[in-house]
Amino acid sequence: MSSLNRFVLSFRKLLPFLGIALFSVSVFVLVSELRRYTLSDIFAKVGEIPASRFVLAIFLTFLTYLNLTFYDLIASRRAGAKLKISSTALASFVGYTFSKNIGFTFLSGTSVRFRLYGKWGISGGKILAIIILNYLTFWLGFFALSGILFTVWPPVLQKAVTVPFGSLKVIGVVCVGLYVLYFLLVSLRQRPFRIKGRSFTLPGRSFTLVQTGISVLDWLLSAGVLFMLLPAGTGYFEVLGVFLLSQFAGLSSQVPGGLGVFEALTIVILSPAYQADALMATLILYRIVFYIAPFLIALVVFGVNEFLFTGFKKTE
C-alpha cells in the first residue's frame, strides 16, 4: 500500500471526530468575530449606506456563494464522482465558508470536503482530485483577471503603491505569463504525467477555459460586494484592483479570512480617495455580509447535516 493510500485511510478514520472538532472550532471563531463589534456600531454603519446598495451587496454575496457550487460541480464530474447537485452545493458552500473564516485551508475546507464527500461514499483519491482541481480553478481566475487588470493599472492604485521596477504592471505581466504558460501546457501536452508510478492527465483547453470563467466570475462578484458598500468616489475597476491585491495578501498570510491583512492593505491603498473611518466602516460591514453571515448559515447547515447523519447511522 502506497504512503498516499495509508494517509487517506488514516485520515478517514478520524473524520467522525473531525466533524465535531470543526463545528466546535467554528463556533469559537464566530463568537470571537462578533465580539469585535457592538450592535449599536453595526446598526449605525448600516444606516449610513443607501438601502439599495446594501441590498445589492447582499444579493451579490448570494450570487458569489452560488457560483462557488460550480467549482465542486465541474471538479467532481472531472474526478468521476457522481453526486446530486444539492450534495455538491452543500460541500462547496460549507467547505468554502469554513476555509474563508477559519483559514488554514487544509484543516478547514479540505477537512470538510473529506468529511462530507467521504460519508457519501466518494473514495479518498477522488476527493483529493476534487480539492486539487478547486485550487487550480481558484488561481487560474486570479492570474487571468489580475493579468488583464494590472497591465492597465488603475491610477488610484499606482499613486498609492510603489514597488521595484517603478510600476505594478510588472505583476500583471507575471500573472499573464503564468496563465499563458499553463494554458500552453494543457494545450500541447497530450501524454499523461507519471510520478512515482502514478499517472495523471492535465485538464484540456475547454475545461481550463470553463475553470477560468467560473473563477473570474467569482472574483468579479466578490469585489462587487465591497464596491456596493463603499461610498461613491471610486470606480469599480479601481476597487477590483484593490480587492485582488488585498485578497492575495490576506490569503498568503493564512490568517483566517485575511483578517487585519485585507483591511490594512485596503485602507492604505484607498486612503487617498476615502477617509479612514469611512473605509473601516465599509470593511466591517463587508466582513459581516460576506464572511460572518454566510458562516453562521454554514454552521447551522453543517451542524444539522452532522446530526441527521449520526442519527441515521444509529438507526441502521
Results as ranks from 00 to 15, higher is better:
residue 132 I to K: 00
residue 120 W to F: 08
residue 154 P to M: 04
residue 182 Y to E: 00
residue 84 K to N: 14
residue 169 K to L: 01
residue 184 L to V: 04
residue 131 I to M: 04
residue 153 W to G: 13
residue 110 T to S: 11
residue 80 G to K: 13
residue 86 S to G: 07
residue 91 A to W: 09
residue 111 S to W: 02
residue 92 S to L: 01
residue 191 R to C: 07
residue 86 S to A: 14
residue 93 F to P: 06
residue 79 A to I: 06
residue 96 Y to S: 10
residue 84 K to Y: 12
residue 96 Y to R: 03
residue 159 K to V: 07
residue 121 G to E: 13
residue 145 L to P: 00
residue 85 I to L: 15
residue 153 W to M: 15
residue 153 W to P: 15
residue 171 I to W: 10
residue 140 L to T: 02
residue 190 Q to M: 12
residue 149 L to P: 14
residue 176 V to E: 09
residue 77 R to W: 09
residue 167 S to F: 05
residue 105 T to K: 00
residue 161 V to L: 03
residue 86 S to L: 14
residue 125 G to D: 09
residue 142 F to D: 06
residue 164 P to R: 03
residue 149 L to D: 13
residue 76 S to N: 14
residue 154 P to L: 03
residue 159 K to Y: 05
residue 152 V to E: 08
residue 156 V to D: 14
residue 83 L to H: 13
residue 188 L to G: 11
residue 85 I to E: 13
residue 138 F to C: 05
residue 85 I to Y: 15
residue 193 F to S: 08
residue 98 F to C: 06
residue 193 F to Q: 10
residue 135 Y to D: 04
residue 121 G to D: 12
residue 131 I to E: 04
residue 132 I to Y: 00
residue 90 L to D: 13
residue 117 Y to G: 05
residue 159 K to H: 11
residue 180 V to H: 02
residue 137 T to S: 11
residue 182 Y to Q: 06
residue 157 L to R: 05
residue 166 G to S: 03
residue 110 T to W: 12
residue 116 L to V: 12
residue 80 G to D: 13
residue 130 I to V: 12
residue 97 T to S: 14
residue 85 I to V: 15
residue 93 F to H: 02
residue 125 G to T: 04
residue 158 Q to G: 14
residue 111 S to D: 01
residue 135 Y to N: 01
residue 87 S to W: 02
residue 190 Q to K: 15
residue 123 S to T: 09
residue 189 R to W: 14
residue 86 S to Y: 11
residue 152 V to R: 11
residue 82 K to I: 00
residue 104 F to S: 11
residue 82 K to M: 06
residue 155 P to D: 12
residue 154 P to E: 06
residue 135 Y to H: 07
residue 82 K to A: 10
residue 78 R to E: 15
residue 140 L to H: 03
residue 171 I to D: 06
residue 187 S to C: 04
residue 78 R to K: 14
residue 110 T to D: 07
residue 103 G to V: 09
residue 139 W to Y: 10
residue 138 F to Q: 03
residue 118 G to P: 03
residue 156 V to Q: 14
residue 184 L to F: 13
residue 174 V to F: 10
residue 128 L to H: 04
residue 140 L to Y: 10
residue 78 R to A: 14
residue 90 L to A: 10
residue 121 G to K: 09
residue 114 F to K: 02
residue 170 V to N: 05
